[in-house]
Design a protein around this nucleic acid. Structure first.
Length: 425
RNA sequence: GGAGGGGUGGCCGAGUGGUUGAAGGCGUCCGCCUCGAAAGCGGAUAUACGGGGAACCGUAUCGAGGGUUCGAAUCCCUCCUCCUCCGCCA
């Protein structure tokens, strides 16, 4: 959520910044309704002031056992009139809120202006593409031979793109999740197990509502949404609270399943575990002061990169251009791991500084050390990491000519010391 | 799911229709005191929106929404939430 005052006072600048990411955006309607709203508020405030004044007079007259019938009569008509004015004011407020809450965040000045995500800037690379010396297999074929997951049976249980993991596949999944959580915890992130069903306000605060409701699964009988990423509950953990500056920054990590409708197409090249309706993810989340949030973003990215380095996976870190950053983000780095089966780099982590966008929506503030007024804090989130594409990366990058797959050293302790996944049967 | 009891400022906690934005306490900040600190004493200390160059002024906010009333923290209704007991259940 952007500050309406900023929109009012620097409309052209805000509009220009927003157009760096959405060229068609216009603030005309917002500025117009805001002006109407203020005029309406002034009018109702004046009527209320009059009402308060006369009410005091009535109280005084009654105390003195004097006649107040004239005042009572005039207040009766004013009271009715006022109710209408308040209703009109409320309509304007709701309209304004609706429009402002659908605006995306302002991109940070360090984010390249470009609508084409092909122009995302590679800032770092780790490792190299593997040189197999044989024809590498797609993860679906490896998974079938190793009996790691099953798409048909998952579809029987629920529907397409809800695969199940079993046997070594399930073990590897848990190994990854445990490894992520322990890794993040060792770097100062406090683990959280949040609720997986989210109410409307929670989903609004993170920025998923109202604009992206079609991406969420929702409950029919209760007003809850299924968690699309634990960024959402972690944002609302401190909703409507005032934290102490001395307690910041706060680091949290949560492992949860994530549910996404993925409305809109996905191509044939994304078969397999590339894009699913349910997947597991370990999230990293930070609450920081405005002064430190961009440094915290750099550290967050390094934390996520370290996971991939520890697993020995070739990857690159890219700075997203304005046209590719998420709605609530001011600046985002993606970590992309090399997937031989896709012949491409794929996002396994997205690390964003949302600055005060979510804090405004969720009314999350902190009291500065100097004792000044509460200020909106900054929120940051990053995957650390999501499992499905990691599963793909490990299978495809670590495969050997005989169809076996070497388990990364860091994961073996979670799999009873197992070093290699061997084809079954 | 049933019965009962709560939800008031950064925190605790008074307050059942009219100078209550809200007593008191704690915390925090400033001053005095002190070599310094503590204690003590004095003072200050909510948020949002709007008007104004500013000082400042107006309005709203006592879980949320609605109602009664000239006027609601206070009365009525609905909902949310926390606690206790009962039931059910992993």
């Amino acid at each position: 959520m952007l500050d309406i005052k900023l929109i009012r006072e620097k409309k052209d600048w805000v509009e220009a910044q927003l157009r760096r990411r959405e060229p068609e955006i216009s603030l005309d309607a917002i500025v117009e309704i805001d002006a109407k709203r203020r005029a309406q508020q002034l009018e109702t405030d004046e009527m209320r002031a009059e009402q308060n004044k006369v009410s005091d007079k009535i109280a005084e007259l009654k105390r003195n056992k004097q006649d107040a019938s004239a005042e009572l009569a005039s207040m009766k008509t004013l009271s009715d009139d006022l109710k209408n004015k308040i209703a009109m004011l409320r309509e304007l407020e709701e309209e304004l809120d609706r429009l402002v809450s659908e605006l995306p965040n302002l991109p940070d000045e360090s984010v390249p202006t470009d609508m084409n995500k092909a122009n995302n800037q590679v800032v770092r690379r780790f490792g190299e593409k593997p040189d197999f010396g044989f024809k590498p297999k797609h993860h679906l074929d490896l998974g079938k031979a190793l009996k790691l997951f099953d798409f048909e049976r998952g579809a029987k249980i629920t529907g397409s793109n809800f695969p199940l993991y079993w046997g070594r596949g399930a073990e590897l999944e848990w190994a990854l999740l445990n490894f992520f959580r322990e890794h993040n915890q060792s770097r100062g992130y406090t683990p959280v197990v949040p609720p997986l069903l989210l109410n409307r306000q929670t989903t609004f605060a993170s920025g998923n509502l109202p604009k992206f409701e079609d991406q969420l699964y929702k409950c029919k009988e209760d007003p809850f949404y299924l968690l699309p990423t634990s960024e959402v509950p972690l944002t609302s953990m401190y909703r409507d609270e005032i934290l102490d500056e001395a307690d910041l920054p706060l680091y949290y990590t949560a492992v949860t399943p994530c549910f996404r409708r993925e409305a809109g197409a996905h191509g044939a090249e994304e078969r397999g575990l590339v894009r699913m309706h349910q997947f597991n993810k370990c999230e990293m989340y930070k609450y920081a002061t405005p002064e430190t949030s961009f440094d915290e973003l750099e550290k967050l990215v390094k934390d996520a990169e370290h996971i991939l380095e520890t697993l020995g996976l070739h990857h690159q870190t890219v700075l997203l251009v304005t046209g590719d950053i998420g709605n609530q983000s001011a600046k985002t780095y993606d970590l992309e791991v090399w997937l031989p089966g896709q012949n491409s780099y794929y996002e396994v982590s997205s690390c964003s500084n949302c600055v005060d966008y979510q804090a405004r929506r969720g009314n999350i503030r902190y009291r500065p050390k100097d004792g000044g007024k509460p200020r909106f804090l900054h929120t940051l989130n990053g995957s650390g990491l999501a499992t499905p594409r990691l599963m793909i990366a490990i299978l495809e990058n670590n495969q050997q000519a005989d169809g076996s797959v070497v388990i990364p050293e860091a994961l073996r302790k979670y799999m009873g010391g197992l070093e290699v996944l061997e084809p079954q049967d």
